[in-house]
Design a protein around this nucleic acid. Sequence first.
RNA 1: GCUCCCCUCGUCUAGUGGCCUAGGACGGUGCCCUCUCACGGCACAAACACGGGUUCGAAUCCCGUUGGGAGCACCA
Length: 463
Amino acid sequence: MSEGFRFRFAPSPTGNLHIGGARTALFNWLFARKTKGTMILRIEDTDRERSTQEYIHSILEGLEWLGLDWDEGPYYQMERIETYKEHIEKLLKQGRTYRCYCTTEILEQKRKLLLAKGEKPKYDRQCRSVDQNLDKPYCIRFLAESSGQTVVNDLIKGSVTFNNEEMDDLVIQRTDGTPTYNLCVVVDDVAMKISHVIRGDDHLNNSPRQIQLYSVFGYPIPAFAHLPMILGADKARLSKRHGATSVLEYREQGYLPEALINFLVRLGWSHGDDEIFSREELVQKFSIEAVGKSGGIFNPEKLLWVNSHYIKEKTNAELLTLARPFLDKAGFIVKDAEAAGAALGSCKEKAKLLTELVQGTGFYFKEEIVIDPQARAKFLAPNQIELLKKLHEKLGAVENFTEERLKQAFEETLGETGKKMGDLAQPMRVALTGGTISPGIFEVMALLGKVRTLTRLDRALVP
RNA sequence: GCUCCCCUCGUCUAGUGGCCUAGGACGGUGCCCUCUCACGGCACAAACACGGGUUCGAAUCCCGUUGGGAGCACCA
């Protein structure tokens, strides 16, 4: 048995699972499932200042909602401190580290100075030639290669060459003794036998520095794939000011996980002219070669369209399950699951979000409807009331409120009065739903049933 | 400022030298359907960033320019 590929999603719990993170997770997941490899979840929580337990929960919940499962983990970096320490020790023995006593203020000054001179603000290695046994707080830096080149062979961007002189001497251990990101990723990716590092292309510049670490440790270098960024409408990296960034916010707004997945995968990946992909199709059709190089703008309208597509595909029973939290929130009580499902189903053609779907079914769930004054003025004028009264007589005689039978009653009324369907349907709609927008009028009546239909009609007939 | 990445309709993209009069999708516009709103159907407008090459032939290959993005933390 050959060993399969291994992938990881490694978020830091310094925020909720956001759109960009979700897509990184998705691409890793797709590649893992496609190749029958292993998906690993690792929480990069070495930033103790900003990492929180709430964010960890939020990230896990987001992944779960999207259906992006993992085979190993979650591993927590804070539980692996000893391993990092050992590796720092190794580097020390190889003479590739040195203590740096420079304070944040001093470093800040140096940066400003270099920037003002028009140079790249990298550390000047001053402490390298300073006594290593001073009784002062210190951090540990990695002595980087200062000549030659480092090549990143990226599955998406191709081969990218960096001059080593561009590289800075990274801080690998903070003054408080905790290791930092660039060291931890390398140590962990090796320890977890990661074969493919798939991450956002904001990390592309980190890759050569990490490759240097792999080399010094004598570890094999994994394959890299740097995904292009997701941008806002102004082409700046997606952030809070572009609207919702947390995946869970989309759940609250009434999006379906499969819609978000489908939308996200199409941002930077394509398969001919196809737009809609089931989870199974994605796993089958996904390939890293088809991932684009350029950043993509997050287009909320398209997301909405994808979502409406998936809502339309749902059965009544599925809609009821999905809409449940929103119904509860609206205070709508489900007495008859089948009828409630049918009510939701009657509105699915016009709903782009689950929240809209539930709003649309208010006429069904509310015991007492309130008639919109404008709608009343326009559609419940005296002559229209007369027409409704005629219809009322017919309806009283109708035993079963089936759409077919109701249509018949309408047509009879219209035949006797010479009016058109619109003349009758619209006033009826206002009488039964309180507004001018609803599913087909016969469907509404069938859904409400004879008793409620006639009660509402009675009430509407007295101004 | 320096380093790296990127560039096909407004947006996501198809396209790997002739199939391109550049295709699809979202959005937009118009028409049809129709008991309202939608759904749906049909149609229209809309792009190869620019400039040089290479070639019989370039959206596709090469060079340069402009433009956009990312990184340059004791954040990840």
